[in-house]
Design a protein around this nucleic acid. Structure first.
Lengths: 124, 124
DNA sequence: CAGTATCCCATTCGATACTG
DNA sequence: CAGTATCGAATGGGATACTG
């Protein structure tokens, strides 16, 4: 008998915790690998898929698509498809997303400062 | 011949990008699954390992250890070991970590508000 | 242009057992 | 108390090919 595996307790737990804990909730949304960076570009206005991709040179198309879908699901961005040829899709922050603007800007400032401090401390 | 595998290009890319991009840098530090939540507890003062664990009921000891080590490496927290029996280890934010305090607090407020909006919108 | 689908290796992470 | 070590399952994420 090789043991019965516990299924995805993890997901259930995290969801349950998010119900009660705003930081966990926030972390689930902006804590992804790319969410914060994508939002930091979108706070300056709507962008097309290809424009985002240009600004995120290290992301694969697949990842960009997945992350945008997740942000959409989390009601952070809206996705607008224009029935044109060639097709055009624009992404824009929702009002909820725009409310992150001051936070993201502070985080950028913090990141810049911290980065310098660390670079200075850590010559490697 | 089965193809030569690309090694960890991913890590190199992200590191290179972080050099130039404060949001990527910030996301790498506070964007983890638990970093933000851990910091949100530590902004109220130092805590022991077991106290953190109590406040993060869904995290495994292994994960808590790994995340704290990463935060230490990122110079976000200090780890102080007291040579006592039983052993005691305290974690505290560094000055750089404490600078996140207003940001974390805003993020909490945002999370709370957003959560309610989403709960109201999404009856599921 | 803006994706979707599939394949598959790499990393993450929980469970469990053990230690100073 | 505060970890470390190890092992599999689950997930992440790149490469590539294809589509409306």
């Amino acid at each position: 008998m090789t043991k019965v595996k516990a299924a995805s307790t993890n997901f259930a737990n995290k969801t349950a915790l998010a119900e009660e804990c705003p930081e966990v909730y926030a972390a689930n949304i902006i804590g992804g690998q790319w969410a914060l960076v994508i939002c930091s570009w979108l706070i300056n206005g709507k962008l097309r898929f290809s424009e985002l991709k240009k600004r995120l040179p290290n992301i694969s198309e697949r990842m960009l698509t997945l992350q945008l879908r997740k942000l959409e699901e989390d009601q952070m961005v809206t996705r607008t498809v224009y029935a044109e040829v060639p097709p055009r899709v624009e992404y824009e922050l929702t009002p909820i997303g725009y409310e992150l603007k001051p936070i993201i800007q502070q985080l950028e400032k913090w990141g810049e400062k911290h980065k310098q401090l660390k670079d200075a401390t850590d010559p490697f």
